[in-house]
């Protein structure tokens, strides 16, 4: 089969440039295979994160021809080979080296989210109908491609005020957990900045697990925030009943 040219970003915090590598294409080859070929034969110090090579761990996130992708899931035969294939690190995160970025910010945000808190006295009888919805969110492999593509982070750098789609998915998984008894609506509005999301759906477009991030996680959470903070009738009802805002 024909060769492909990969144009890979090489550099670190100080800056960098792209370098071209010629790679023989085999049937069914993915971009990560090509990167491994480069490591094995042309540039042993080319830095890349990867683990499972089966789209289960979410390590090999990068931007292939400008699109945030998992390299292990991006088939070479789906890319035009007449031009070099551009492989760049995720743009939204600070670069460490070559294709590896510093994603530690995500782990810091994650710590802000109160953990699963079972309702007191639950009998742990849980039915599939109640679980289906949450299981979709639990498919997340933390590839952070949604964080990378989200313009609130990518273009507006709201790293201080905004948690990003990944963590709305996590919060959705907790909020809609049939046994969880805690409300995170205030956190969503005040600390995770759900209001910054303008539901333009790029997170959903790039999700390799095909989680309907916008429709099933973010919008339902926005509606829950509305229940708590913007719906005058519901707010009045709660006031009359004297309901505590931390419980569901």
């Amino acid at each position: 089969m024909a060769d492909a040219i990969l144009e890979v970003f090489r550099g670190d915090r100080q800056g960098g440039k792209t370098e071209q590598y010629r790679v023989p294409v085999a049937p069914g080859m993915v971009v990560l295979d090509a990167i491994h070929y480069i490591q094995g034969h042309l540039a042993p110090d080319l830095a890349v994160r990867w683990n499972c090579k089966a789209a289960k761990c979410g390590s090999c996130s990068a931007e292939v021809n400008g699109r945030p992708r998992l390299m292990c899931k991006t088939r070479m035969d789906a890319l035009p080979l007449d031009q070099p294939i551009k492989v760049f690190p995720m743009k939204s995160f600070p670069i460490l080296k070559d294709l590896v970025t510093d994603v530690s910010w995500n782990y810091k945000i994650n710590k802000k989210i109160p953990p699963f808190t079972p309702r007191p006295g639950t009998d742990w009888k849980v039915y599939q109908d109640d679980v289906d919805r949450v299981q979709e969110f639990r498919k997340c492999i933390e590839c952070f491609l949604c964080q990378d593509v989200c313009h609130v982070l990518r273009d507006h750098d709201k790293f201080e005020q905004f948690a990003g789609p990944r963590f709305f998915v996590r919060v959705a998984g907790l909020e809609m957990h049939p046994v969880d008894g805690k409300s995170r609506a205030k956190l969503l509005r005040d600390e995770l900045g759900i209001g910054f999301c303008n539901i333009t759906k790029c997170c959903t477009e790039v999700c390799p697990e095909e989680i309907h991030i916008t429709d099933n996680a973010i919008i339902p959470l926005k509606e829950r925030v509305v229940d708590q903070f913007y719906d005058p009738v519901l707010m009045l009802v709660r006031k009359i009943r004297g309901v505590n805002e931390d419980s569901k």
Binding site: G66, V149, V152, R154, G195, N198, E205, E223, F229
Partner: peptide, 30 residues
């Protein structure tokens, strides 16, 4: 053009999403 398309750059300015007037009114959709 917030954003024009996924992974396409947009204007650098003070972006507030739906946290400020008038877009905060989107919350009244129901």
């Amino acid at each position: 053009m917030d954003p024009p398309a996924c992974a396409v750059g947009e204007r650098k300015r003070n972006y507030c999403g739906e946290t400020k007037f008038p877009f905060i009114l989107q919350n009244l959709h129901r």
